[in-house]
Simulated scan of single mutants.
Amino acid sequence: MKTVIALTLALVLAAQAVDDWHKKVQSQRVRGSKYTIHENYNPVTIENDLCIIHLDAEVRGEGIATLRLPSRSQAEMTFAGHKATIAGWGETSDNDTIMNTVLRYTDVMTIMKNDDCRRYYELITATMLCANSPDGSGVCMGDSGSPLTITESDGVKTQVGISSFSPSVGCETLRPDGYVRLTEYLDWVEKWAEVDIRP
């Protein structure tokens, strides 16, 4: 585990657009002076590509909520075939030159079997998952760290992945995107985020 003290790390909560967060009554800006990087993160193989930001203060308010994490009973699920949603502030095309300031999402992603994803990326391991969309929508530069969610039978969104990488040849190539598979890290998340994982 590597805990780092950040010089400046600001998070904007409950804002649809980063630029006008100060105009929204419910929007909040909070500092995070520490973050914990997974101790086995490998930037070459992109394994264990997750980090927890520790906020300096607890935040609550309108428009602020947590995403449900996978349960321990889902640890062996691959989620292959599930429809998923990805959200982020990244670029919307390969031609973009600046980051997006408006939160965008697409909900036409389908989670793939890892064997199918290995046809595109040899580096795929059991700690990763892939998702793609028939229209090419998905993550792009600047979306790393964004949540990949499914909607369960009770209607609640559950985060099953964290955006890790998009195709090196461009995000409009119809190739799948790569994600951290959260079910492989439930113990780690429970320990360092100090949250309880559902049975």
Rank of each mutant, 00 (worst) to 15 (best):
T97V: 11
H82Y: 14
W192K: 00
R68H: 05
I37N: 09
C140V: 03
T92E: 13
D94G: 12
D115F: 09
V108P: 01
N48I: 00
S73K: 12
E58L: 14
M109Y: 03
T78K: 02
D196N: 08
N42E: 13
V169Y: 06
I197G: 01
E172M: 14
R198Q: 12
S71G: 11
E39G: 15
W89F: 15
D135E: 10
H54L: 05
S153T: 11
C51G: 05
L69N: 01
D19Q: 06
A6G: 09
R68W: 12
C51Q: 11
C130K: 02
V189M: 03
S166A: 15
Q26S: 14
I197M: 00
T125S: 15
G136D: 06
R68G: 13
D96C: 00
L69R: 00
S153E: 15
S27M: 00
I53M: 15
E62W: 05
S168A: 15
W89K: 02
P176Y: 02
C130A: 09
I5V: 12
T45I: 03
S133C: 13
A65Y: 00
T106M: 05
H54Q: 14
P199V: 07
Y120V: 07
A14C: 09
E91A: 02
S168K: 13
C51I: 13
R119Y: 02
T101R: 04
V139T: 14
E76P: 01
L174E: 07
T45Y: 07
D143A: 05
D56C: 08
T92S: 13
D143S: 05
A84R: 07
A126T: 06
I5F: 13
S146E: 00
S27G: 10
K83Q: 09
R60F: 15
L55S: 12
P176I: 02
V18A: 10
D154R: 07
N95K: 13
F79Q: 12
S153R: 11
S164W: 05
Y121F: 15
P134L: 08
T101E: 10
S71R: 06
V189F: 02
Q16N: 11
G155N: 02
S166R: 10
Y179T: 03
A87S: 15
M1N: 13
T101N: 11
Q26F: 12
T92L: 15
Y179W: 06
N132D: 10
P70L: 02
S144E: 07
L148Q: 06
D115C: 04
I53R: 11
K23M: 10
E76V: 07
K23L: 14
A131M: 02
C117W: 03
T8Q: 10
D196K: 04
V12M: 06
D94N: 13
D143W: 03
R181N: 01
S166L: 04
S168R: 14
Y185M: 03
Y185W: 01
I111R: 03
P167D: 09
E47H: 09
S133M: 11
Y121R: 09
T125M: 14
I86G: 03
D135M: 08
P147T: 02
F165T: 08
L129D: 08
T158H: 07
